[in-house]
């Protein structure tokens, strides 16, 4: 168990009784985790995973799902928030489902995470250049253009998408569609 694991009240009491120090961050360390789940490719399996979060009162910040190279297996990414104890519980509850084939918390590993965003923005003669500048800085793609609107496609880590949308708030955002996060562990070269 990692040192940052959040302690149960009973453990804290036990540590105190033994005169051991309790690290300040042992009380609470709540953060976002990206959990990858490989499940049987069926609507029932997907619902079972989502239902587990709802039935047991866990948070869900984002969910993505799609087939893998093996079409009988779907890959899900669930972004959830909680302390280490809750996350450990989520991982165990997910593994316990009959339909889950593999469950891992990517947050504990070296991984890449991406999100895709489509955003439709209204422009006029005055704002057009500025909007295009922002897009160039973020390396977005223009996927549709009309005399009044741009539609941009942007991929990247979630903070980048957030920042791009924040920049566009100065203009007239008509529509935003975000995919939710997908993630993958970087390949480990055996040492």
């Amino acid at each position: 168990m990692s040192a940052s694991l959040v302690l149960t009240p009973q453990q804290i009491k036990r540590k105190k009784a033994a005169g051991e120090p309790i690290e300040p961050n042992e009380g609470e360390l709540i953060r976002q985790h990206t959990i990858m789940v490989l499940v049987e490719n069926s609507i029932g399996s997907l619902i079972r995973v989502v239902n587990m979060f709802a039935a047991r009162g866990f948070n869900v910040d984002s969910i993505t799902v799609g087939p893998t190279a093996d079409e009988t297996i779907s890959r899900m990414h669930v972004v959830t928030t909680g302390n280490e104890r809750i996350i450990a519980q989520i991982l165990r509850q997910l593994s316990r489902l009959v339909d889950t084939i593999e469950v891992s918390d990517l947050t504990e590993t070296n991984y890449v995470e991406r999100e895709l965003c489509l955003i439709k923005v209204r422009y006029d003669a005055r704002s057009r250049a500025e909007i295009m500048d922002v897009n160039t800085v973020f390396r977005g793609k223009v996927v549709d253009i009309t005399p009044r609107t741009f539609t941009f496609e942007l991929t990247g880590p979630t903070p980048k998408i957030d920042a791009f949308i924040d920049m566009m708030r100065n203009h007239n955002i008509l529509e935003v569609a975000r995919s939710g996060r997908v993630a993958m562990q970087r390949h480990q070269i055996p040492s």
Partner: peptide, 18 residues
């Protein structure tokens, strides 16, 4: 929970990981 078995270490033999 926080006052249950305050002095005990716990060994848990269990078939359900959750």
């Amino acid at each position: 929970l926080d006052s249950w078995a305050p002095h005990a270490n716990i060994v848990h033999i269990e078939i359900d990981q959750s």
